[in-house]
Design a protein around this nucleic acid. Structure first.
Length: 176
DNA sequence: TAGGCCATCTGGTCCT
DNA sequence: AGGACCAGATGGCCTA
């Protein structure tokens, strides 16, 4: 999977990598099904081979057309879920938090996009801008759009973790 | 145990 | 006619 780690600094930092690195959700079954669907042997829409589909087991007496519609619907939902999974990997998440729900993913993505747009409009350094907003509650043009508890909690977490890391580095340097 | 989240099935509607 | 999309219903799983 493509790795997209947004970094406030030119150099990378542990805290930012932890925050923006895509989670590793349990999608083995989903991937397996997607692989099956992508295989040339997998029957296409309207194919007479639909009756041979291994997933799922066919209820006896179900009309072929209904089975085909069900299969198409499952494929459609799988593609939607794959898109959600990709989106989950591109919004800030805590490294230890559980998998975001679909609705949370959408809401967080909306807030995150608003924040990025706000940073662009400000012309400030991203890190300085976020820290200033978190400290002073500065009112920006789109503040209301991205000032959600979900997103600000994540941003605060990054700032706190980064401060801790810097503190540990300073202390260790003093002891040398 | 209630509530949230999710996958799946199903029927309806619209489009090609 | 068949496929895509959508929303409602249902049941399973998980967590507080």
């Amino acid at each position: 999977m493509e790795e997209l780690c947004y970094s406030f600094e030119e150099g990378d930092s542990t805290a930012e990598c932890l925050l923006w690195e895509p989670a590793d959700p349990d999608t083995q079954l989903e991937n397996f099904l997607l692989e099956c669907l992508a295989e040339p042997s997998w029957p296409g829409p309207g194919s007479a081979e639909l009756d041979k589909c291994p997933v799922p087991p066919e209820p006896p007496g179900q009309p072929r057309q209904r089975r085909a519609a069900n299969l198409r619907e499952r494929r459609r939902m799988l593609s939607i879920n794959a898109a959600f999974e990709e989106l989950r990997g591109r919004v800030p998440t805590f490294p230890y938090e559980r998998r975001l729900s679909k609705i949370d993913t959408l809401r967080l993505a909306i807030a995150y996009i608003a924040l990025l747009g706000d940073i662009l409009l400000s012309g400030c350094h991203p890190k300085a801008y976020v820290e200033q907003c978190l400290r002073s509650g500065a009112r920006s043009p789109q503040w209301a759009a991205w000032n959600t508890s979900d997103l600000t909690a994540r941003l605060s977490w990054v700032s706190t973790l980064e401060m801790l890391i810097l503190h540990v580095i300073n202390v260790s340097q003093e002891q040398i």
